[in-house]
Write a protein that binds this DNA or RNA. Structure first.
Length: 287
DNA sequence: AGTCAGGCAACGC
DNA sequence: GCGTTGCCTGAC
């Protein structure tokens, strides 16, 4: 199946963007590297929609198949400029400046909240490769199936599908003790015990986080990840072991827990979560 | 074989 | 409050 270049349309953006770094930055786990019509790129489902194919050439130009330019741009956060993101960062922060220089092309993507929350519930005490494996297994067993370029792709399973599957079937996807949390979350969403649309519409970070914390298996870290990557809360600052290392070793912070969280949110400001993404990638590659 | 990994909840003090 | 412990699994 040949892919004439004419089928590809450009996805415009302002500032820096690295598709590869963004897909490897620990926020999206299910995209696959494929070759389509002789062009190397990545493909994956965007929310409940069909898979999209995205490619970035050596000069940085991003292309996708018509008519996907709009939804691809929104998904990868290409509809805001990287300069506007950084304008809200602290002025005198050499560590952050170095992290940005190291991986300036990372964007915070916009995933659907349920998919994002569920994926991070399964992420507890797991490495990226494991999180990816669990996501792909859950998708292939319980998610809607699509075909593209001779490959199969699966949307993330709906809360209803995971609630109906039962905890034991989720455990068989390699989730271990996380199966209980994921199943309870699927039940809570599908029965309306928690309203994710309301969480998404809640402008207050603290109030949105409070709603997510009511779920079993969701603590500060996972709640902040879900809000940052799945609800546009750029003020959410997830602290995992890598960020804790950076704050301790490079920022010389000696406090932990809620105190550290409060310091970080104040220091990094309204786009703290975006700063966290640069720092996280920087820490993982260099510490 | 043992350790460890991008947490959380339940418990003890 | 604050520190400990158990929890499933796969990779080294």
């Amino acid at each position: 199946m040949a892919t004439p270049d004419g089928m590809l349309v450009e996805v415009p953006f302002d500032g820096d963007f690295s598709l590869g770094d963004t897909l490897k930055s620990g926020q999206i786990f299910h995209w696959e590297a494929i070759t389509f019509g002789g062009i190397d790129g990545y493909a994956g489902c965007i929310g409940d929609g069909p898979p999209a194919f995205v490619t970035q050439d050596a000069s940085g130009v991003v292309r996708t198949l018509a008519p996907d330019a709009g939804r691809v741009g929104r998904y990868f956060g290409l509809d805001h400029s990287s300069a506007s993101v950084r304008a809200a960062f602290p002025a005198n922060d050499p560590v952050l400046a170095e992290a940005i220089a190291f991986c300036s092309g990372i964007r915070v993507a916009r995933q659907p909240l349920w998919e994002c929350l569920a994926t991070f519930i399964t992420s507890s005490l797991k490495q990226v490769a494991h999180i990816r494996a669990m996501s792909l297994t859950l998708r292939s067993r319980f998610g809607e199936r699509h075909e593209f370029a001779g490959h199969h792709f699966h949307a993330y399973p709906t809360p209803e599908a995971l609630a109906a599957a039962g905890e034991a079937a989720l455990r068989e996807c390699g989730l271990g003790y996380r199966a209980k949390s994921l199943h309870l979350a699927a039940l809570a969403v599908s029965t309306g015990a928690i309203d994710l649309a309301a969480v998404e519409a809640e402008p207050s970070l603290a109030r949105a986080r409070e709603q997510l914390l009511a779920l079993h298996g969701v603590g500060d870290k996972i709640a902040n990840c879900a809000l940052l990557f799945g609800a546009g809360h750029w003020d959410a600052f997830p602290i995992d072991v890598w960020i804790e290392r950076i704050l301790r070793d490079l920022y010389r912070k000696r406090v932990k827990g809620a105190k550290l969280q409060a310091w970080a949110e104040k220091h990094f400001g309204p786009h703290a979560g975006y700063a966290q993404q640069y720092l996280f990638h920087f820490a993982r590659k260099t510490l």
